[in-house]
């Protein structure tokens, strides 16, 4: 009991010391502390905030993707009166009442990742549908426009996963000789993707291609195939995580698409900065998803500590 209390007090003191900075703080909300994508986003937001003279406080539900906890964290963060909030909502629709509260308190709030309703000042997004369509085209061309493929979805029903899958399916319409033999969800988890792939290989001995809605799942599927001694299947995925880019360089993964949490975090914080200065910002900012292939892989996947933020100006999105 005593030690628990002592540690709580220590934490309290260390945290309150860390708060001291010039322009105030920005609260950063992510869905969980398990998926590396959100760590990229947190680091991106940190880097941008430091560059602009802010400090950050990070919030993520202790149980991954727990929506109720995120709502409580928003309410608690309002009490701290931050200069702004950047946000990956667990659920865009359900968060509306909370976002309303944030706006009522006069705090600017920017959503990065999702488009959707809600009352955010601005949205920073990638076009998931287009990403799915583009990587699928690379796969289809590699296969010469024919063969059997499987699609591994993320969380069925989540906007990101659904849009990526829909994009893939749309591209496949123009390749009638490619047959989708199975669509299975693996909830963005590597172990689940591995087991799904193991089972699918039993069901369909010949699989020419795999489209995975995230690098993490693609790598799980690749592990399954490699340990079964199964070669020749081409895999494409999305996200451009450090792991994913390495796999592309090594030729294990055919292609991935850049979905940079780091840059989204940067841009979201920059928008908060502009909002606090009273500048106008666009309501929707779409970042361009570049394709990561063996030829271009060198440009991507730097370790987080070596990355730098591109400003809106660099990206050609603002003056």
């Amino acid at each position: 009991m005593k030690t628990a209390l002592a540690s709580v007090i220590l934490l309290a003191i260390s945290a309150s010391c860390a708060m001291a900075q010039d322009k105030g703080e920005i609260a950063v909300f992510t869905k969980n502390k398990v998926d590396p994508f959100f760590e990229e986003a947190r680091v991106g937001a940190d880097v941008a905030a430091k560059g602009l003279g802010y400090s950050t406080v990070q919030y993520a539900p202790t149980r991954p993707n727990n929506f109720q906890e995120q709502i409580a964290q928003v309410e608690d963060a309002i009490t701290r009166k931050p200069k702004g909030m950047v946000f990956v909502p667990v659920d865009t629709k359900g968060l509306k009442p909370s976002v309303d509260k944030v706006r009522e308190a006069g705090i600017p709030i920017v959503n990065f990742i999702d488009m959707g309703d809600g009352n955010f000042n601005s949205y920073v997004i990638y076009d998931d549908h287009k990403m799915g369509a583009d990587v699928t085209r690379i796969l289809a061309e590699k296969l010469g426009g024919k063969g059997k493929i499987v699609i591994i979805e993320g969380i069925k029903g989540s906007a990101t996963s659904d849009n990526r899958t829909a994009g893939a399916q749309e591209t496949l319409k123009s390749y009638p000789q490619i047959q989708v033999v199975a669509v299975q969800a693996a909830n963005y988890q590597r172990l689940q993707a591995l087991q799904v792939m193991e089972n699918l290989m039993q069901q369909f001995p010949e699989i020419d291609g795999v489209i995975a809605a995230s690098d993490n799942m693609a790598l799980g599927a690749i592990e399954a195939m490699e340990s079964a001694g199964h070669s020749g299947t081409q895999v494409v995925s999305m996200d451009g995580t450090i792991d994913g880019v390495q796999a592309v360089s090594a030729g294990r993964l055919l292609a991935s698409a850049e979905f940079s949490g780091f840059q989204m975090g940067c841009t979201a914080v920059e928008i908060i900065d502009r909002l606090t200065k009273g500048e106008a910002v666009p309501e929707r900012l779409e970042l361009k998803a570049e394709m990561i292939t063996r030829e271009t892989a060198d440009k991507f996947g730097q370790p987080l500590e070596r990355r730098t933020c591109k400003s809106l100006k660099d990206l050609g999105l603002a003056s």
Binding site: T3, V8, A12, M19, Q58, T62, D76, A77, T79
Partner: peptide, 19 residues
């Protein structure tokens, strides 16, 4: 609520409740 207000890393909140 208090740990959120102080801004303690959320993973340590789990440890605090368990302890």
């Amino acid at each position: 609520n208090g740990l959120n207000l102080i801004g303690v890393d959320t993973s340590l909140q789990l440890v605090a409740i368990g302890a």
